[in-house]
Deep mutational scan, measured.
Amino acid sequence: MATGGRRGAAAAPLLVAVAALLLGAAGHLYPGEVCPGMDIRNNLTRLHELENCSVIEGHLQILLMFKTRPEDFRDLSFPKLIMITDYLLLFRVYGLESLKDLFPNLTVIRGSRLFFNYALVIFEMVHLKELGLYNLMNITRGSVRIEKNNELCYLATIDWSRILDSVEDNYIVLNKDDNEECGDICPGTAKGKTNCPATVINGQFVERCWTHSHCQKVCPTICKSHGCTAEGLCCHSECLGNCSQPDDPTKCVACRNFYLDGRCVETCPPPYYHFQDWRCVNFSFCQDLHHKCKNSRRQGCHQYVIHNNKCIPECPSGYTMNSSNLLCTPCLGPCPKVCHLLEGEKTIDSVTSAQELRGCTVINGSLIINIRGGNNLAAELEANLGLIEEISGYLKIRRSYALVSLSFFRKLRLIRGETLEIGNYSFYALDNQNLRQLWDWSKHNLTITQGKLFFHYNPKLCLSEIHKMEEVSGTKGRQERNDIALKTNGDQASCENELLKFSYIRTSFDKI
């Protein structure tokens, strides 16, 4: 039985969820670079991206490699990797027998973001014989899940209580170790020597080791999670996991709180800001991140802002960003909400898709409305799209047979046209069989910064309504002859009103 693990408890099935942008060198404390989270699957090609990484700022997932063999891993080693800020997950990587050479110096898994409450997941690794993470000293947050690894031993010899604050939620089941077939031998045991430290858990006094050649490092209890030197002297209180010299914040392997210019500090002093819960960055760093993602459509890219001495992905609820200094300031009234469309555009074809934009005031991208039916549609669209004030790209209304009016965009005031449909149009209306009105132009103002209007096959939309939009939106004169079809717009509506004058002759039985 794995020490510190839980057996036999019912657990939810383990679901495996399925960018080499360097964020800056980590400095003297770390020998390499800070790398983003990685999802490495199918083959070993991307694994080489770990070569210079000291910190993975995010998670590391290595999974679904069915053609790899043990010899493929023999020359692979990433000794610079010290810390993973989120979680480490391995799933069905064939041929991998140990992690001792792959990650010989991995010391800390912070667990800032977890995989279903777990910071370390080893699942269905069919050839893994031992973990071998002999320098792993601290899992700051989260638990361990090690399950269905039929060859995995050296679990009962690990004292997880020396690595985690609590072992109650560890789930370590259905491994070879369960069948008591392992016969784990710690260093020196074969020669009758006791080389590794022994600890007591559940009444068992057991030597602690990761492999037959690597003991588990056990520091004096007084050192807590700070770690200790090879001689057993406690590291500085700002260290986490390990250090090369005692009581020196510049000799830590990793930091308990924050890293700044080669030393570990309790908090980031001005003019620095907390970033990702582990390091200090200056304003320029946060500003660069903001600008890199301002026009990016890459998933996970955030326009970072500053709030409460932190550089964070977005302002919290009730705050909006001051564009001059990136500071989050309290909103006066309802907060603006910028919604970034991942692929640059979004099609609204149902109430469900409209709900995804609920509360958005600025759309960074283009909207395509293609709704053919739905219950209580006008009210639903207004509830979900009615706060949109600005669209950076274009607005396209296409084959939306259920629409009679666009009044559900009740606050839309600006279409920038930074991206144009077919390279020309910022407003595009095609084949809307029941569209009769755009907006009530006596109450609604709309500016279209650039781009043209396109109207074709809107049989109940009168040309007068379209011409009014040209005047109000500032697009009059931009359109070419064929942009607004004269014969297919309003051709099934009563669009022309003329005053009919009647004269009559009164007659009676005795007068003409």
Rank of each mutant, 00 (worst) to 15 (best):
I306C: 06
F283L: 11
M321P: 13
T211E: 15
H214Q: 12
C234M: 04
N325L: 07
H59A: 06
L114Q: 08
L233F: 07
N195W: 12
Y154P: 14
C280D: 00
P271D: 02
P31M: 15
A198L: 09
T250W: 09
C280S: 00
L136H: 01
P336S: 06
I62L: 06
L63Q: 07
D177F: 12
H236Y: 03
D288N: 14
N135P: 04
T45L: 13
G227C: 05
S244H: 09
V206L: 12
K67Q: 01
M125Y: 00
F115W: 03
N202W: 10
T140P: 07
F115S: 09
Y272L: 15
M321L: 03
F258H: 04
K67N: 07
T140Q: 08
C328S: 03
N117Y: 07
I56T: 01
L89H: 05
I222S: 11
P316Q: 06
M38A: 07
P104G: 02
L81S: 00
N322E: 00
V281I: 08
F283T: 08
N105Q: 10
D261V: 10
P104T: 01
K191L: 07
T211S: 12
T229S: 11
A156I: 10
C223K: 02
N202K: 04
G203H: 09
C331S: 03
E181R: 11
K310A: 10
P334V: 15
V55P: 00
Y118W: 07
T221A: 11
F205N: 15
E180V: 09
I163F: 11
N135Y: 03
L131N: 01
Y30T: 06
I62Y: 01
M125P: 00
N195V: 12
N242Q: 14
T250M: 07
K176M: 12
N149M: 02
N308R: 12
C239G: 01
I163Q: 03
I146S: 02
K224M: 05
C182V: 02
S324Y: 03
N138V: 15
T320I: 06
N179G: 10
E238P: 01
G58K: 00
L99G: 02
N257A: 09
T140A: 12
D86S: 03
Q287F: 10
G241K: 06
T140F: 07
R145F: 08
F66W: 14
C335A: 05
T68N: 01
D178W: 13
L76A: 15
I82D: 03
G203W: 05
C209S: 02
Q299P: 10
H290L: 07
L136K: 00
G188P: 08
C255N: 01
R145Y: 12
L81G: 00
Q204F: 08
N242M: 10
F73S: 06
I312S: 10
C264Q: 00
Q299E: 06
W160I: 02
R256P: 02
V34I: 03
L327T: 08
I312P: 07
D39A: 12
E97K: 11
F91R: 08
Y259P: 01
N42P: 03
P336K: 09
L164T: 08
T140M: 09
F103D: 00
C255H: 00
V121I: 07
V265I: 04
L99K: 01
F258Y: 15
N202Y: 12
S112G: 06
R208S: 08
R279Q: 15
F78T: 01
E49Q: 03
W160H: 01
I306H: 02
M137R: 11
C239A: 00
I62S: 00
Q204V: 10
K224D: 10
P330R: 09
G58S: 01
M125R: 00
Q303W: 05
P269T: 14
E238D: 15
C243A: 00
L152T: 03
D277L: 06
I158H: 08
C53P: 00
D184N: 08
T199L: 11
Y134N: 05
V206G: 07
T250L: 10
S112V: 12
K310M: 06
E207H: 12
H59N: 09
L63H: 12
T189K: 04
L88P: 00
F285H: 09
L131F: 09
C223T: 02
C264W: 02
F258I: 02
G183M: 06
C335R: 04
A254L: 15
Y273T: 09
G300K: 13
E51D: 00
C209H: 04
I185W: 15
C264Y: 00
K191I: 14
C209V: 03
G95R: 04
K176E: 11
M83V: 06
D177P: 14
A230S: 04
C215P: 10
F66S: 08
L99V: 08
T250A: 10
L44P: 08
D261R: 09
I56N: 00
T211R: 09
G262R: 04
K176R: 04
C255E: 00
G58V: 00
Y319W: 15
T157L: 09
S296L: 08
I201D: 10
I201Q: 11
M321T: 06
L47V: 03
G262Y: 03
R298G: 12
A230I: 06
V305W: 04
Q61P: 00
W278E: 04
P269S: 08
P316K: 03
M125Q: 06
N295W: 05
C219L: 03
P70L: 10
D169L: 07
H59V: 13
K251P: 00
F116P: 02
N135E: 04
R74Y: 13
S77N: 11
R110F: 04
L99C: 04
L60G: 00
C235L: 01
N42L: 08
D75M: 09
V55L: 05
I82L: 07
S161L: 09
G318P: 07
T329G: 13
S324D: 15
H274L: 09
E124P: 00
G95L: 01
P249C: 03
V167M: 01
T320N: 09
A230M: 05
T107I: 15
L90G: 00
F78K: 03
C153E: 02
L155T: 15
R110P: 00
N42R: 05
C331K: 07
E33M: 14
I146F: 10
D75K: 04
S77T: 13
P220H: 05
T199A: 09
Y30V: 05
R46E: 10
D39L: 07
M38R: 04
L152Y: 01
R256W: 03
V144F: 02
P79N: 12
N170L: 09
E314V: 05
A156T: 07
L332R: 07
H290F: 14
E231W: 04
I84C: 01
T320L: 06
C209F: 02
L106P: 00
P249L: 07
L233Q: 11
A190F: 10
D165P: 14
I146M: 09
